[in-house]
Nucleic acid binder design. Sequence first.
DNA 1: GTCTATAAGAAGATAGAC
DNA 2: GTCTATCTTCTTATAGAC
Lengths: 211, 211
Amino acid sequence: MDTKHRILDEALTLFSEKGYANVFVADIADRVGIKAPSLYKHYKNKQAIFDAIIEEMNRRFLEQAGALQINGTDALVDAEIYKNISEDQLITLGKNLFLYFLHDEYTRRFRKMLTIEQFHDKKLSDVYMKKYVDDPLSYQGMLLEMMVSAGVLQTENVEIMTLHFYAPIYMLLTICDREPERETEALKTLEAHIRQFNRLYARNEKKHSGQ
Amino acid sequence: MDTKHRILDEALTLFSEKGYANVFVADIADRVGIKAPSLYKHYKNKQAIFDAIIEEMNRRFLEQAGALQINGTDALVDAEIYKNISEDQLITLGKNLFLYFLHDEYTRRFRKMLTIEQFHDKKLSDVYMKKYVDDPLSYQGMLLEMMVSAGVLQTENVEIMTLHFYAPIYMLLTICDREPERETEALKTLEAHIRQFNRLYARNEKKHSGQ
DNA sequence: GTCTATAAGAAGATAGAC
DNA sequence: GTCTATCTTCTTATAGAC
């Protein structure tokens, strides 16, 4: 990785831990292994580093949204998959979503930085909302909608059903961001949540194992 | 209100909007209507103002927790109320919780400040977790437990049921903190959520109006 | 592109008059 | 308790040699 990218990477780490104002240019330079003045050969000033991070974040998000769209489209094409989706597959769906958000290093640091800086700049809270609220609700909603169409799940209001599926995941995520030691407990809760979700929304005529 | 308290109040407002590091002592003094040096007659330094806010917050939280405990105990004593709780009463319960968190000025500013400053200091994230995650789950769980005992609601896992009740409320709260203009929409969603929650967890033999 | 030296400015805090 | 004036320190950013 070249110096220019390493600066971005170390800056993101520091910003996500301490917030923009509490990170000094010299701290970033230190981590990269150069002196502060050298850093100005790569970026005009401190703000430019921050802006570059946001730009990079948007680039990755768009890339990823495209990937999701393709998955979504694929899913729609062979919607057969969703007709016979099992409880275990639903759990896998939820766990993957959760673990991706939680463990992807880039994603995690971005989210922490956004959490800290969101009230500083409306644009940042917009990014946060889109990424962690509106987009997941919309994507998960699409999948659940398909399962309802396929007759696997049953509801009068898919929007609320989606909220019931995703809100607990979101809450467990904010817990683990703050207290990583609660991850094991959170994963157990997540699984119990999805099993109960499935039981609640399963078509009445469908019988569950062991009941 | 005397100057000492007005400093605390204005400081909290500013910290909750911009974060500690982005608020200057002169800004606080300005709002109070004095010059920065005068402020040092009331507090030793900037950090002391912040500490006093946290102390005041803890004081209020303890006071409030006491009040909740009493309500809880009262509720337990005449649990009769919960035997015949209606969907509308459940909605009122959720809305009150939501609107209290959202509109109580002190609570709102504290929550925003905690959200911004939580990664600076572990103690702050602990306060946040307790206040907005663990305490509500525990309190709501107690109420729902009573409703299950009374036979109004039915579940094999009250803990997950509580998560299903509270997580959407928590999520709507974080939405409104960031985008207050979505409050009306959020309140509608909240009501739909609780109606669906009630339908999902209502005892099978219970028939719902209009179905 | 990196360094040392340093300028420029911001923000916290104090001194001392009133 | 509040003010003006000022000190001190910290941080960003630039100059110019290598």
